[in-house]
């Protein structure tokens, strides 16, 4: 179980590779790895976004992410979890968040990582402050629901 909150740009796949190296002794036990990587868009609510500042409440943020990781480990039969979240100045295409879960089977890995990203989105104390290409600055009022937008 690992939680990282960083001001530095990060490569999600390097984090996963490094973490798997550390877990090598358990490698034969896992049959599924789910990853969610959230990246910054260059648009939001119909406007072009140039940059973003991500504020957070440290160490409540880290404490909260550790708490939900422990809850996931308790609730599902998962082997391990990894959460990385960026704070500070961010530009479009940068990774904002990585959530990964390792489990014997895909069902538990999917469910645990869905739980982690939804809890993070709804309760972890982070706030996005956008700078639009026209120079306007604004706080993002709320996160989207996370429900899939079905197209048939």
């Amino acid at each position: 179980m690992k939680v990282v909150v960083t001001t530095e740009p990060f490569n999600a796949w390097e984090y996963i590779q490094d973490y798997e190296q550390q877990m090598r002794s358990q490698a034969l036990q896992w049959g599924a790895v789910t990853t969610f990587v959230g990246t910054m868009r260059d648009f939001n609510e119909g406007d072009d976004v140039q940059a973003m500042f991500l504020e957070h409440y440290s160490p409540m943020t880290e404490n909260y992410l550790e708490k939900i990781s422990q809850t996931a480990m308790f609730q599902w039969e998962i082997i391990d979890t990894l959460i990385v979240h960026r704070v500070g100045e961010i530009v479009p295409q940068d990774n904002i968040v990585l959530v990964a879960a390792w489990a014997a089977h895909r069902g538990t890995a999917y469910e645990a990582s869905r739980f982690l990203i939804e809890e993070l989105k709804h309760n972890a104390p982070f706030w996005k402050h956008e700078t639009l290409t026209n120079g306007e600055k604004r706080w993002v009022a709320a996160n989207t629901s996370g429900e899939a937008q079905t197209k048939i």
Binding site: P125, W127, K128
Partner: peptide, 10 residues
Amino acid sequence: VAFFPPVTGG
């Protein structure tokens, strides 16, 4: 004690 608006991380 801390007061803050709805969170928008992730």
